[in-house]
Design a protein around this nucleic acid. Structure first.
Length: 629
RNA sequence: GCGCCCGUAGCUCAGUGGAUAGAGCGCUCGCCUCCGGAGCGAGAGGUCGCGUGUUCGAGUCACGCCGGGCGCGCCA
């Protein structure tokens, strides 16, 4: 076993107070238990009793029984043989055996000083981060992106940014739906409508927009069902497509081009990291499917059942208690998406050398992925790699049903995003801030993304423009406002924004590939001896130190909402501090210290939001007008 | 029928086996000669769907019910 025990675990990362405390307690705990324990086994938690203490250690309670000792006595022993003196006040045993830990303010101040000089804000680069493939967004060609693509796109992108920041090499894969019988129907429909007749005509040149294609797609599907002759021609068209017949091929390529133009528009609006090179659609795996089928057959993992080539990974039973198949090749000889997913997985491990593959795909496909992963493991395709379905719930309307338009159609993603921006613009106008389309976009898009990221991804959530654009509560607007306030104070103190911006990695740097301008360090703009006197500024200081743990906790289960929860708590803590502690008018030393706290708040919020793919502007309104001008 | 997920304050949601279960909205009451009031503080509001277990300790883990959602052979 590799030294798992040394690795950072749930909610604990090395520069985080919880992790540092755990490491101090660990030697004594190992001695007392004789067990090889890791940081998470030290049971260090943030304390709910904020007045007494900041952290608590529950290890004595956890191990007392096993060791046959009284919890309180064990707690005393643990304290006696641990060296905590520089970090916290003398620990106290409370209740049945809790160890209450109160951080020394001087220590907190020292750690904050170190953070000021650290552009990574205490987050360590993973030494062996491995190579992670993230499969996300995955829209369909010839269909408009709709609200069903929102979560995959937003969550996948946030995970990509967080992982890259932590030093993991990430390969984004946009598994677009660009193949299969639907395209036979669609292309046949287009041909019969007269498209591509003069050899070079393309949908776009014919004036077909993505919306037109979407409409053709639907009418083709309807015809396919009702008109057997058309269905026959559509099937023949699939064969033409597979064999690369030029006119069919040209039409298909133009469909893909026009669709990618549409995806690009949405991705630009969302500021998503996905690039054209990241597209690896279903069509890309067609040449591999025969080999996949053959390999599975040769290994005895697939056999013909009811005329289809099926694989039955162990442990899955269906309707009549029978085994559930993955259908590799259908009766009609065509490959299914089960086959495509298997081929993609094999390719990602073998050719892309992934050590980890994340599938950011909706929860309804859980069974499908469990089966694909199980079969891949049986086939030996997951050697040295792990695959994980990062599932998410649905976006619901106010009626708690899948969000749809009044007519029952899926909500177009572009409409939804534009409405968010429009509403943000209306709010700005209402506040007398005026026309600023870019700011409205930052606020509106940020609100949509944050609403999606801030609840547990596995749960459904109810979509509400009103709530997500509120200034109160756990919203991006509240965080952006807190950040802007911190910046406003710094501005008044004469600390240049550019300097502050350079002092940490911005969202764009996070989006960059490894090696592209990740380490362009500059000197931090502020150096100060911190003083933590007031309860609210001490609490803020500790909240700032918890950033690495919050990020680690979010990454631990690929749950971005944990980072959101942290950022909101930080902003709340900052607001309380801001309210009760004068900054600019404080005595010199205290003023410097409090400005440093503001700088750290601004940096943490900016970085944290950046990791979620959300911009944090330095101001939310035009600069105040000078009377002289 | 089988499987997965959900059920926490009137509403929307946090809660990674630990102390008296927390936020925001809404409701009640306070706070601007002061750095961005787009803010801050306080109060009321809970059989954590129900039950039985495991545990020193259960909102959290197991099992069984009730209620809701989603899957389960040739759509992707």
């Amino acid at each position: 076993m590799s030294d798992q025990s040394e690795r950072d675990g749930a909610g604990v990362s090395c520069a985080d107070p919880a992790c540092l405390l755990a490491r101090r307690l660990l030697p004594a705990l190992r001695e007392l238990t004789g067990e090889r324990l890791g940081v998470r086994d030290a049971h260090v938690r943030e304390s709910a009793r904020e007045h007494d203490c900041d952290y608590q250690c529950n290890a004595a309670l956890a191990y007392a029984k096993r060791l046959g000792r009284a919890p309180r006595e064990l707690a005393e022993a643990l304290i006696r043989s641990s060296d905590l003196a520089d970090i916290c006040e003398p620990p106290l045993v409370a209740g049945p055996g809790f160890i209450n830990l109160r951080l020394r303010s001087e220590w907190v101040a020292g750690e904050l000083g170190a953070r000021l000089a650290d552009r990574r804000l205490g987050v360590a680069l993973r030494q062996d981060g491995g190579r992670c493939v993230i499969d996300y967004s995955s829209p369909n060609v010839a269909k408009e992106m709709h609200v069903g693509h929102l979560r995959s796109t937003v969550i996948g992108d946030a995970l990509l940014r967080m992982l890259r920041f932590c030093g993991v090499e990430v390969i984004a894969q946009n598994h677009i739906g660009d193949w299969g019988t639907p395209f036979g129907m669609l292309i046949e429909e287009l041909v019969e409508e007269g498209a591509g007749e003069d050899g070079g005509a393309e949908p776009q040149q014919d004036g077909y927009s993505i919306a037109d294609l979407d409409a053709f797609y639907k009418s083709a599907q309807a015809r396919f069902r009702s008109d057997p002759a058309f269905a026959e021609r559509a099937r023949a068209r699939v064969v033409s497509l597979q064999s690369g017949e030029p006119r069919t091929q040209a039409l298909w390529e133009s469909l893909v081009r026009e669709s990618e133009r549409h995806f690009r528009e949405i991705y630009d609006l969302l500021s998503v990291c996905l690039r054209p090179e990241d597209v690896a659609g279903e069509s890309a795996y067609q040449p591999l499917l025969e080999a996949v089928a053959q390999e599975l057959s040769e290994r005895g993992l697939a056999q013909i059942s009811d005329g289809a080539l099926c694989a039955f990974p162990a442990g899955f039973s269906g309707r009549e208690g029978g085994a559930v198949p993955l259908i590799i090749r259908k009766q009609d000889g065509g490959f299914s998406y089960d086959a495509t997913d298997l081929a993609a997985l094999r390719h990602r491990v073998r050719e892309l050398a992934a050590t980890e593959i994340l599938y950011v795909v909706g929860a309804p496909q859980r069974l499908h992925f469990e089966m694909v992963f199980a079969l891949a493991a049986e086939a030996g395709w997951l050697e040295g790699a792990s695959a994980r379905h990062v599932a998410f719930g649905s976006v619901l309307g106010p009626d708690r049903k899948m969000l749809r338009t009044r007519s029952g159609a899926p909500v177009r993603l572009l409409d939804l995003l534009q409405e968010a921006v429009g509403r943000a613009q209306a709010i700005l106008a209402e506040r007398g801030i005026g026309e600023d389309r870019e700011l409205a976009r930052t606020i509106g898009i940020g609100a949509v993304k944050y609403a999606d990221l801030s609840t547990d991804r596995e749960h459904d959530y109810i979509f509400s423009f009103e709530r997500m654009l509120a200034f109160e509560g756990n919203t991006s607007v509240y965080l952006q406002y807190a950040n802007a306030r911190a910046h406003a104070v710094l501005r008044r103190a004469g600390i240049a924004e550019q300097e502050l911006a350079r002092s940490l990695l911005g969202a764009d740097a996070l989006c960059a590939q490894p090696g592209e301008d990740r380490e362009a360090a500059t000197a931090p703009p502020i150096a100060a001896e911190l003083v933590l006197e007031e309860p609210s500024e001490r609490a803020l200081g500790i909240a700032l130190l918890r950033f690495p743990g919050a990020l680690a906790g979010a990454l631990d289960d690929y749950k971005p909402h944990r980072l959101c929860t942290y950022l909101n708590a930080l902003a709340v803590s900052f607001s309380a501090f801001y309210e009760s502690c004068p900054i600019l008018e404080a005595p010199a030393a205290l003023r410097e210290s409090r400005l440093a706290l503001c700088a750290l708040v601004a940096r943490t919020l900016t970085l944290g939001l950046g990791l979620l793919g959300i911009r944090a502007p330095a101001r939310l309104s035009p600069p105040p007008r000078r009377s002289a001008q």
